[in-house]
Design a binder for these strands. Sequence first.
DNA 1: TAATAGGCTGCAATCGTTTGCATAGAATAC
DNA 2: GTATTCTATGCAAACGATTGCAGCCTATTA
Lengths: 330, 330
Amino acid sequence: MLKTRANIKDVASRAGVHPSTVSRVLNPETRSMVSDGLAKEIIQIADELGYRRNPLASGLRTRRTFTVGVIIPDLTNPVFPPIVRGVEHTLDSEGYIAILADSGSRRRSEKALIENMKARQVDGLILAAANRKDPLVDQCIEQGIPLVLVNRTVDKHNVTAVINDDELGIDLAVRHLVELGHRQIAYVGGPQRTSTGHARYRAFLKTAKKAGITVDRDLITNAREFTEPAGQAAFHELMQTGKKFTAVLSANDLLALGCYDALEELGLRCPEDISVTGFNDMPYVDRFVPPLTTLHIPHDELGVQAATLLLERMQSPDTPTKQLRLEPRL
Amino acid sequence: MLKTRANIKDVASRAGVHPSTVSRVLNPETRSMVSDGLAKEIIQIADELGYRRNPLASGLRTRRTFTVGVIIPDLTNPVFPPIVRGVEHTLDSEGYIAILADSGSRRRSEKALIENMKARQVDGLILAAANRKDPLVDQCIEQGIPLVLVNRTVDKHNVTAVINDDELGIDLAVRHLVELGHRQIAYVGGPQRTSTGHARYRAFLKTAKKAGITVDRDLITNAREFTEPAGQAAFHELMQTGKKFTAVLSANDLLALGCYDALEELGLRCPEDISVTGFNDMPYVDRFVPPLTTLHIPHDELGVQAATLLLERMQSPDTPTKQLRLEPRL
DNA sequence: TAATAGGCTGCAATCGTTTGCATAGAATAC
DNA sequence: GTATTCTATGCAAACGATTGCAGCCTATTA
């Protein structure tokens, strides 16, 4: 029935020392300033009293909160949970906590979100929803908030980011389709304002040329969003060109599912009539009918790496920025 | 190029008043203590200076952090993201933030997690991973931390919880199967240490009896975990009894998927040989082969309600506890 | 032996707000 | 016109930690 948790003064008075001494003992950086014997004794007493440093008081003084903000566009998009989990676990192991904000598809003023995080004195920020040109990112950099992008990046290279190697991914997918004998491959891309949509699109152009297959501009379309309906619409658009194609590569699993919807509407069958390939690795895609060939992206690892890099940057904010690309596989 | 964000003193001196006056103006509770004219002026100046209250300092003094801890067992289980999102959005609209912890399937010492949250002075806690008898829950209650359970609850009724109406759900499922003509229905349940596993099990017994169908104890088995392999094993167990059944109702979608796996191994077909029904509403189950009949649980709403109740409790900690049951549908 | 260096610990200010109490002036009551 | 209530503001002490500086004591050096 403690009134309130023991504080540093309680420990100090019980040990017969000044609070500052206790503080020094409990802080790894200053631990060596106090004699071993006394230190042991203080630690013991702190344990007995169940003392825990008050992060508010500590943060107020030191301006470090051991808190990082994690902003994602939509937690129900299956891409993000594993990322967030990787981030959270990694941060936790270093004593940091994650405050999570789902900016919502409506982009519930991300600016306000970031303002809020800043006001709460987060030590760093992980952003999973950046656009290729993103004023928010610039803003963070200007203000010197340690920042790591994950999943998507921006065009500028002055930001640390952990992303999937889209070029490799598309390369794998195209080669796979070519090996299956496809020569007319259509492409359903994602929004070009995102780095993923853009990179995959360019990778497709490049790889297709390299593989020596027809690259017909009419068979390439970029959806506005990474959603099922957008994929559906895109597929119909492809059909309306009247051109023939035997396979469609889509930049994202949700788009691929949209293609399925369209196929069904048109009474076509997959893969007999047209073969569909996805990109992103939603869980359980292998159970879909028909099973979707897709690329496995190591989302967990994306999160872990992002958190690791952020920890680094928070330690020494002047480490050069870095772009990390993780390898997907079929 | 501000040295640091404006603080209350800056505002005060610019307005020619004492910091306490500024504080009062900016705090809705005490706003009325200061004259309207002055208040307006101060607000204006605060705006100009881009003043934001420092939550650390404020929290240190008031012991409120406008922060709640959200603990879930595994973010990659598709049940939880919508819950978390609902929680986060609701909290955000009231100025609270969510700090998220994924306790990990290994139950990475939840006790430590809660300790950590407590040390960080969260104003409340949302727990999605409770067991029916959960010492952690008792601990929170003892310590008087406002607490709301979501998704699962405990046996005792002295806790506020928002859960799915499992009895109704099972009832719907059983009636559905009966309408399809099934009379021998097997049941693959979940772990009995969880309220969901337990409630669904009891509901099955009750409903089956009510519906007048055979309740053969041999055709009822409870898995140890809500996982695919556990479901698979459970199904094999059912088959080994040698008893005949035409449908299996499983307490969770992952268990249902495990049943599919087992069916496939045995060369049986669904629904021709045996019909499988799930429970939980993973996204995209309708695309599985064969399509899984399952119950839709309003997970978003679960999260929203949990957050709402928690906000209530944090306002007035003595509001009586409440158990909220939301209705699922087929 | 005296002077100096170095190792430990205490002192007190500080981080930015909040809030009980005091007070000055205005308003009301008598 | 004085006494009494309000109202609106200022004062200063917390909240719980950290940290530059000062000072004491012991060990080292000349």
